[in-house]
Design a protein around this nucleic acid. Structure first.
Lengths: 204, 204
DNA sequence: CACTTAATGTTTACGATGTAAACATTTTAT
DNA sequence: ATAAAATGTTTACATCGTAAACATTAAGTG
């Protein structure tokens, strides 16, 4: 009944979809509003009826990509419903794997001004609720590990130190590998697995 | 005698210098060739006498920034001339500190296509010798630690795992903090120091 | 010195881009 | 039925990277 058929059938969604595709295929630097519009067979200013600016469209695309990312991480969590430590390890592995498979998302997540603008977004867009905030899945898993760890060993571990070192390690490995700064003859993901499941990670 | 005074006194160097400044002030996204040219009081096509393209200028700027980066890391090394482990820890600390103080360099180092083009550069520009390659200082310190560690404990540690986890942790913390993805009420650098000097880092 | 050539800078031009403004059409509401 | 809102188009403009033609200065050569 509502917005089903006009000139275009749900142009907003198609702009995001085709935009994400364009981003994957040509990279962040060569992304352009006009190309996305053309891909949707629409005039080059039509996107302005649905997005305030190019950055606004990119932000919507980034949110879409974050959904995929968080979904990927949640699948990892669900492999170990009752084991917080294994959850976090598996999630770290998926974290790295995701960016190896989608290296272009690195620019989208960390090099666009997305991160800077995200708090503002949160107020305006009701589809962007707290649970879908970037890295929320990962962060919550860390928190579960923290509290478990703390209740077992008292207050010997600084939770902030645990969160930063844990998240930092996974984050750094993902970027180094995905951007090919770290070169290695063998299988990257096996190396990551070995690191995450060794004693050093998480102090466990 | 050679190139000291023409229309401009060493325009090439000034383009790099003003370009770096523009990058710092306005960010990577708003960087433009024409602005740099204007900042040097020169026509907007003058840079083409010294650089093949905008990307070529950015690459030169990135090399300049890498010099600063590597210099910063070498200072950290020199604090502990005879202690490989402390060298690496101090270097990791400087690594993070550098990007906190120069967050815009993150885009320059990892989001421009600099990393992708660097091998090609290496053949053409004789000022860009191996020792000045990005992260070379850091990487060599890791190697020193690796060999020391190996000679002490046999072959129990995979050197690749050590390098990736060590570099990854520092790299990831730097990015998370500099891009403000990790929020923390206290002093970030103190937290980093605590992590690097705790038992977990380097298995030491 | 005179003359050629290379190095360096300017002017002009073009296509691509983001975006604003005015206009047109279609849906929705009253 | 008519007004209002939503959605799309056309036109216009400033900015951008870059190519081409031209101008000027420095360096090299007889």
């Amino acid at each position: 009944m509502s917005n089903e058929n006009y000139h275009h059938e749900n142009l907003k969604a198609e702009l995001i979809k085709k935009g994400l595709k364009l981003l994957d295929e040509e990279g962040y630097e060569k992304f352009s509003l006009r190309k996305v519009a053309k891909a949707c067979s629409v005039s080059h200013t039509a996107p302005y009826r649905h997005f305030e600016s190019k950055d606004d469209l990119i932000m919507a695309i980034a949110i879409e990509a974050h959904h995929k990312f968080n979904q990927c991480l949640e699948e990892a969590v669900n492999k170990y419903p009752n084991d917080n430590k294994s959850q976090l390890k598996e999630m770290g592995y998926s974290y790295v794997k995701f960016f190896i498979e989608n290296p272009e998302y690195l620019r989208l997540f960390f090099l666009s001004d997305f991160a800077d603008n995200i708090k503002k977004m949160n107020h305006e867009d009701e589809t962007f609720i707290n649970d879908e905030q970037p890295f929320n899945t990962f962060y919550k898993a860390i928190e579960r590990c923290q509290s478990e760890h703390q209740s077992r060993e008292g207050d010997s571990v600084d939770p902030n130190a645990l969160a930063l070192s844990c998240w930092g390690l996974v984050h750094g490995m993902a970027i180094l590998i995905a951007k090919k700064d770290f070169s290695y003859a063998g299988d990257y993901l096996e190396l990551v697995r070995k690191i995450l499941w060794s004693g050093t990670f998480l102090n466990l």
